[in-house]
Design a protein around this nucleic acid. Structure first.
Lengths: 126, 126
DNA sequence: TTGCTCCTCACGTCACGTGAGGTGGC
DNA sequence: TTGCTCCTCACGTCACGTGAGGTGGC
């Protein structure tokens, strides 16, 4: 049973603009079906959008995101898989590094919050 | 004992362009001293740059980064600290969410890598 | 007819990249 | 003089935001 989403449906669900969805189509990240002029987004579009938005949050460019999505799509094409493997491994390495970055930022923030709270408690009557 | 860095020093150390450093000065994130036309960056600039670059890697805008840096600077100004506290707490929450994002992406990638490796092993003679 | 959702241009913005053309001291 | 590093415009690019003006069915 095939479901479709309108551009407004997805915009609301993921809190992005319709412009963004059109832009992603233009860049080949999404490929909605047309019904007259109107776009009908499929399950595949929706799944790709979820990955694309996560990629964006992690700082990837749209071009990198498109490449990643296309890599995910190759089912059983040995040659392409051999090419994809080192890219995946590099990305994994980068993400692990990014996680330490975040851990550092979280640590700093927690210390700052503790310091501010302590200061405010000690000067309650100031 | 005061040390200074040239724009080239910092560009090399952090692998960014000189243009970026000038841009950050223009936005008030850095405030190097001038010697004639040339910029001399201080320890304070360098410390702010490190935080700014980490902020960028985590997806903050330069305006947000400037606000954060300015918040870090308020030493013992009670009113401003009271204002800063909820902002810090919101950022902490966002960073924790971002960390789960990364964890999810890492998990996906590890699974994909395992799948690709398994496929390639099973078809060694293909 | 009004209201809603959708459409296609097309210009604006943010965070720089990338020359163009020039200066200053070893 | 050459080579290096620095400078100030200023236009280009990427990922959209934001109208402008219009269509289509309840």
């Amino acid at each position: 049973m095939q479901r479709f989403w309108s551009i407004g449906d997805l915009a609301r669900e993921f809190e992005i603009s319709a412009r963004t969805l059109r832009f992603y189509e233009d860049k080949g990240i999404l490929a909605p079906i047309r019904e007259g002029q109107k776009r009908k987004f499929t399950n595949r579009d929706r799944a790709r959008l979820i990955l694309a938005l996560r990629g964006k949050r992690l700082g990837f460019s749209l071009e990198e995101i498109k490449d990643m999505l296309d890599l995910y799509d190759l089912d059983g094409k040995k040659k392409q898989m051999l090419l994809a493997l080192p890219k995946f491994q590099l990305q994994l390495k980068n993400l692990v590094a990014q996680r330490s970055d975040i851990d550092g930022a979280i640590h700093d923030l927690e210390q700052n919050i503790a310091r501010v709270e302590e200061y405010l408690n000690n000067n309650e009557k100031g």
